[in-house]
Amino acid sequence: MLSLTKNKLLVGAIAAALLLTACSGSNDESTATESTESTESTEVAALTGSIDIDGSSTVGPLTDAIAEEYAKVQSGVIVNLAISGTGGGFERFCETGDTQISNASRPIKDKEVEKCKANGIEFTEIRVGTDALTMVTSSETPAIIQCLTTEEVVSVWGPNAKKKWNQVNSSFPDLEIKVFAPGADSGTYDFMNEDVLDIEEPRQDYNASEDDNIISQGIEGTSGSWGFYGFAYYQNAGDKQRALQYDAGAGCVSPSVETAQDDTYKMTRPLFIYVRNDALARPEVADFAKFYLDNVASVIGEVGYIEAPAETIASAKAALQAAIG
């Protein structure tokens, strides 16, 4: 029988081995280079520090793509990116105040602004892109179901939703409507209800999921299915589902990059980042925000979203510059 001292040694050895494994992959990126108070506008100055970002899972991948590019320029700045959802992000941004930037797939709500105010947090809203909410159905659904007006969408998704397609529009077939859509915690859900349709609450008898891939799977196999999600998921959806056109009053329009940009497709939503004004005093936060606006156009397509109009980006740049002072 071995004595405990030897056991202790072994436990220590294991812990040491784990420690070694843990740090063998580390490098010097986190160590500070030069302090850079001199000129924050010159691009060569190496910045250090860390930026905490939380918020929308829609905008998260876009911000991560920017952070990926930013790390090539300023490797000393660490961007910590979490995805608690738009609402969860604003809670940290306005209440606990431990993030400097909040990602949002909808404009900030009044009560969230109140919270920020109550905690003395001033912020700048920066529009970084556009997402086209896309209504989809299975490719097995009869082709006659192709375009929905706002009224028809309400009778598919609204509080007094119909059970069958022919109750929505008499030209549609006698087919059951099966809805797969985002759950109540998602910004997509909020945006559809509050900004597109202006309804209090949607139908309750639908398959809700916070994971758009689950919605996608449900849509695919079910004839007569209906659901919606962000444009990025539609682009990657394959040919087992098709997008439905949306008629906001001026005719049927398919979702696409072009129709979203020229504003003929009306089911678009703006994507934002919100930056704390007092954090902009830190050179790395200001520099990252500027970098975001300068480079968003080059990565946004790859992430699956749509460029915001040039004048919107220009005015966002002006607002940011004013906030930096």
């Binding site: 990126e29 986190s30 998260g60 952070a67 660490i78 910590n80 979490a82």
Partner: peptide, 19 residues
Amino acid sequence: AGAVFSRRADSEPWNLTEP
């Protein structure tokens, strides 16, 4: 408890107060 999904820095067991 606050794990982030993306950061471009390594964690080390002694850096207790890092994300």
